[in-house]
Amino acid sequence: MNKVLYSSISKKFVMALAGLFLLTFLPVHLAINLMLLNDDPEPFNKAAHFMSTFPFIKVVEVVLFVAIMIHVIWGILLQVQNWIARPVAYKAPNRSDTSPFSRFMIWTGGSIFIFLILHFFNFYFIKLGIVEGDPENFYSVAHNLFKIPAYNIIYWVCFILLGFHLHHAFYSAFQTLGLNHRIWTPVVKVMAAVYAIAIPIGFAYIPFVIWILK
């Protein structure tokens, strides 16, 4: 049974499931973030408070954390195996046609993970009390952060990379789960493109408004 659990396809299956779960989480997060554009901090802070105290969400939070860790660890594991599978590299760069961004998943994923750590320092760890700050007023924490130009640039770069990551991830997850269809797969590919553009733009729009427009 171990053989099955750790087979290449099973690992990919786990990757895909965790990834899909993370895909559903992003719009929720974005919806809450968009409240930052409201001049009144109350709704955002309320939502943040709700997210961090409501029991069901607490459970989801654990699942989310596990999903991230599995996605990261499995991703690294798979990648290491992939590197080992070609110990001697081609001298001429491989020019085979591939789906865009699919070759760089480990790098885009890695960058996102680093951003995530930064993100945890800024918010999540405050909530846990590891880092100093006011967990009841994330609105001002966010607004303060978005006034730091360097932070915003890192933020934007990371969301562009996230877009690249999502573009391949969205379609790839379906393929890995074996969900392939003559009509629906092209639709999934379009949805992937829309999702991969809309989500990062949504997130990136917030600091743009706060830093530039206000």
Binding site: S8, I9, I84, D97, M105, Q175
Partner: peptide, 15 residues
Amino acid sequence: LGFGNCSNTGACEAQ
């Protein structure tokens, strides 16, 4: 045997 995993890049199909 030590083949790598599938990343759904599509290079195989292209070539």
